[in-house]
């Protein structure tokens, strides 16, 4: 069992100040300092931006009657990624859904900057959340308006290499193109935490390349990513969490 694993990455390239402006919070720094956690961090020490860390504390997941994993503890610092690996059915998707808040953990909690992660997540699961009846532009413009950001749609599509499909009804898109569209939503929504469930499945070599560029830029801006994958992804900023089967 992969319990008690600690992945504490501390990046010196923290440029996460803009996330801190989202919501004024109680002084997390003081709380963490009292619990001795300041010692683990070697970045700048003042202001909340320092502590925009994704923490999973003692997570236990039970699906049906079966315990999938238990006692999972880790944290992902700003600018770092966590690669979740392991054979099929070991709980990678369950872990990502727990982190996203789609499922409630049986035990444990997920924290972001000492508080709740709700509303700060971009999640790409097995379903692409693309409406077949609408064009790509209509689909993405809706999510842009719904999440309340004013980013450039064309730039996001361009980054994923699907700008030429913008007025195409999405029912004519291939699986790989739909996946690229789902990933383009990550660039439209200004969420500090990306939770990606096998993001590169059905992508071709070029698709994986453009996705990696987008991911590296997100991390360089101080974002956090947790992704599950079966492929080898070369991410320098990533730790690996390998889930194993119950003995």
């Amino acid at each position: 069992m992969s319990g008690g694993l600690a992945v504490v990455g501390a990046s010196r390239r923290v440029r996460a100040a803009h996330y801190a402006t989202e919501r004024p919070r109680r002084p997390v720094a003081a709380l963490l300092a009292r619990r001795g956690e300041l010692a683990q961090y070697d970045g700048p020490r003042f202001g909340e931006a320092v502590f925009v860390t994704l923490q999973a504390i003692d997570l236990t997941c039970i699906r049906g009657e079966r315990m999938i994993f238990s006692g999972l503890t880790f944290s992902v610092a700003p600018g770092r990624a966590l690669l979740v690996r392991g054979p099929n059915g070991v709980g990678k998707t369950s872990l990502l859904r727990l982190l996203a808040g789609l499922n409630a953990p049986a035990v444990g909690q997920v924290r972001w900057a000492g508080g709740s992660l709700a509303g700060r997540v971009s999640y790409v699961g097995h379903l692409d959340a693309i409406k077949a009846a609408l064009t790509l532009r209509e689909n993405l413009a809706f999510w842009l308006a719904y999440r309340g950001h004013n980013r450039s749609l064309a730039a996001a599509l361009d980054a994923l290499g699907i700008a030429h499909l913008i007025d195409m009804p999405t029912r004519y898109l291939s699986a790989g193109q739909r996946r690229r569209a789902a990933l383009a939503k990550l660039l439209l929504v200004d969420a500090p935490v990306w939770l990606l469930d096998e993001p590169v499945s059905s992508l071709d070599g070029r698709g994986i390349e453009v996705f990696m560029v987008a991911l590296r830029r997100h991390l360089a801006e101080g974002g956090v990513a947790v992704l599950s994958t079966h492929q080898e992804l070369a991410i320098d900023e990533a730790e690996t969490l390998t889930l194993g089967r119950n003995p």
Binding site: G119, D128, A129, R147
Partner: peptide, 13 residues
């Protein structure tokens, strides 16, 4: 079925 509901659950709204 197409995953939009999951995304609505996760949005800040």
């Amino acid at each position: 079925e197409d995953g939009v509901l999951e995304q609505l659950c996760l949005a800040p709204t």
